[in-house]
Structures are given as C-alpha cells and as structure tokens.
Design a protein around this nucleic acid. Structure first.
Lengths: 139, 139
DNA sequence: CTGTATCCTAGCAGATACTG
DNA sequence: CAGTATCTGCTAGGATACAG
C-alpha cells in the first residue's frame, strides 16, 4: 500500500529500489495505472507533448471533452506531478499547462498507444463486424 | 485522414487506406482507444502475453477483478479480435484465452505502461502528498 | 470449471448557468 | 479567458445465486 514512503522522502536514486506489481490490487502502482488508464489522460498528456497549452486550446484540440472534465482531469494530473499549471501574469486570466519531466516520460508511452489505436482502428472495426455477424447466424 | 499503408493482408483496400485521429471524437480510433484505456484491459492483455490462460488462472492472477467483469472484458476483447477464446475438449469445462497476432502487438505497448506505473508509482505517491499538504496550508 | 442472470449502487461524466 | 457550481442520467462494476 504505502511502504515506499520510508525510502523515498525526496526520491533521488533510491526510487529505483522500489518496484511495484500492478497485478496486486493493494499495490500503489494500481493507483498509477488507473490514473493513466483514464480515457482522457490518454488524450490530454500526448496533446501537451508538443508544448504548453491553454485551457481553451486543449478544449478545442480534444474533441468531445467537456470543460468540467478537462479541468478535473488536469487537476488530478497536476496533483500527481505529471502536469504543471502556470498562471501567466496579465490583466485577463491566462493559464498554461505543460508536462513535467515525469509527465513527458509517460506521454511517450501514451503516444505509442494512440498511434496503435489510429493504425489498428480499422482492423478492430472489421473484427467487431465479423464477430457480430457470426453471433447473428448462430443465434 | 487517409494514408497509404501496406498493412495486414486480411484487410480490404478500403481498410488499409485508413488512418484515424484519436483527437477526433467521431473517429473510430476513439473506440479503439476507449477499449484499451479500460483499467482491466491494461491488466488482462499483458497477463496473457506469456501464454494462454484459463479463466480461473486469470481470476487469481489479476487481483481485485470479479468473475463478471473478467468475462465481460474478455468477451469485448474477443469481439475486437485481440483475444482468442478456445474451448478445450474434455469432460469438464476447459476454456483457454490467448492473444491474437493483433493482440500481441497491443500487449507490448501496454506492458510498457504497466512498467511505467510500477516504476513511477512511488513518485506519484510523493507528488500527491506534496500537493495535498500544500492545499492544506493554503486553505 | 466456466460462465450467466439479476439486482443494486457509487461515481463518472454531460448539460447548463454562473463567477472572478 | 478560465474556471466553479449544481443537477442528473447513465453505466461500470460489485454481490449473489444459479446453470451447463
């Protein structure tokens, strides 16, 4: 659950000493997994890879997300140290979001997934059609 | 949204020429993304990477999953052509699940995510604690 | 052993309106 | 522009019992 705390007050190089097991429901790596498994995390993080982005820009870039969910997800990502929120000085409100170092390493892995989805979506569609057609005839 | 691509031979030409955009809510690659974004998909697929597994073995290996959700998720993965379900002959019921070719390519990407989660869970924990402590003092 | 069939509930997430 | 505040529907998912 929370046994890495003893050796990781500041997390220098001793952080590699700990390795979790995602298959263990009680392991905190499960929390990490559930965070990054979120359907919006998979889009927000890669969207920030090219550079910092503002709220509205993200809203426009990520089709289908609502303002509320975007804010919620960004806040959760910030809380976990993956995204950095920065209020820019000025008269009008101006906030930028960018990836942390840690966030960038995650984004790389997520981009691979996005690419996989884009490249294999058609094959999945075809498989679904085949499966559903088979069910039709069998029942 | 159309790219020339020489992919799998089992696909029709129309399917081969298609490349999606996950940022487009209407694109079918979104469906693919949502499928693989599921918290259980991220565990089931890598669990099958070493070799075929039976229902009960998966149930034991994947901590926290229920029989119902396991069956549900496996069926959805089978429907999308990622997992193959095979009933073994015999007196007692005996079913094995294994990855398809397509599924194996996805699993590789998912394992990378699992590894990331395991290696960085401690750092996420620390970030959360820092963030929550800051909120405590600021309010 | 491998599921199916219900019932049921917490919380995710959409729509809408308002604030600094 | 960048959020917050509600209200609310939906459905993922847990518990349990039963079936092939």
């Amino acid at each position: 659950m929370a046994f890495p705390e003893s050796a990781s007050a500041s997390l220098t190089s001793a952080e590699q000493a700990y390795r979790g097991d995602v298959f263990d429901a009680a392991c905190s790596s499960r929390l990490a997994l559930e965070l990054i498994a979120g359907k919006w995390t998979l889009l927000i993080m890669p969207a920030l890879l090219p550079g910092p982005m503002r709220n509205n820009a993200l809203l426009r870039k990520i089709g289908g997300i609502s303002q509320k969910v975007l804010t919620q997800t960004l806040k959760e990502l910030e809380r976990n140290g993956l995204v950095i929120r920065e209020e820019q000085p000025g008269a009008v409100a101006h906030v930028e979001y960018r990836l942390s170092e840690l966030g960038r390493t995650l984004s790389d892995a997520l981009v691979a997934l996005d690419d996989w989805a884009e490249n294999n979506a058609a094959e999945l569609d075809a498989a679904r059609e085949r499966y559903d057609a088979r069910q039709q005839t069998h029942r």
